[in-house]
Write a protein that binds this DNA or RNA. Sequence first.
DNA 1: CTTCTTGTTACTGA
DNA 2: ATCAGTAACAAGAA
Length: 288
Amino acid sequence: MPELPEIETIRNGLRRFVLNQTISSLDLRDKKLPVKASDLNKIKGDRFSDVLRLGKLLIFTFQKSDKKLLIHLKMTGQLVFLGEKTLIAGGHSEKNSKNLQAENLRHIRFQIVFSNNYKLVLNDTRRFAYVRLVGENDFLEVKKRFGLEPLSDKEFNYSSFLKLIEKRPRKNIKAFLLDQSLIAGIGNIYADETLFSSKVSPQRSVASLNNIEKKKIFENIRRILKLAVSKRGTTFSDYVDAEGKSGGFLKLLKVYGKNGQKCPNCPGKIVKIKVAGRGTHYCPKCQR
DNA sequence: CTTCTTGTTACTGA
DNA sequence: ATCAGTAACAAGAA
């Protein structure tokens, strides 16, 4: 499940590969994707000028066209850069890593072929990922749905965080963290990890938090997301970066996927329950 | 065979 | 308006 750190890692990887590359063709293989082949053809011959990120959404801009290509990976989407036949750097594998091989790409839904025959490939088993090509107006509509960017010190600081809390006082804290229109980019993994490090139960409401808990949650959001970016994200099931490589944050997870295991902080065990419709991992002893 | 999973949106009912 | 809960989406794992 790619969340902000994973998407940021993909973005950084892709920038190295796709900027200034001339697009020679676009191959739309899945008709379900909300984009028309005839629209895609309009960016043939153009070049990518930048790769941006909004929450978990990737945004590609062009040198000539004013349009933007939006790619959301949802749960199982993978976006990788391929050499003529193989992944640019996917072949080298470390112990315990699930580095992706080109032959693992069994669900290619969309790809862009560059003039040197290198490719940008969207692989997605469950077909929830989407590709859209939007003009300025549609892009502004999309942008409106996103909340604060947690890696931006300007947008996301303690006072803007407190304002969000005041705006949604009755909301459950886990649902609050997952709400993309409030803070953009936190998903199930980093929500659980943030609440564990803050010693706050996922079942609490926002209104019940004291000042110390609010401050801890705020600080842990930033700390954990930044740490995860520096480790190139978390590979739990499908995620790989632009080179097909696994993320290194998996080893640093304290509660996500650890149900039944001992809590890192106390003799108790991590349990998994359902909160806000999501599988939620926490320590009932440490998190109150 | 059924059930569960997940990011996001859409809908319902409180 | 806000919030919780649930279905839907698709496909694979258990």
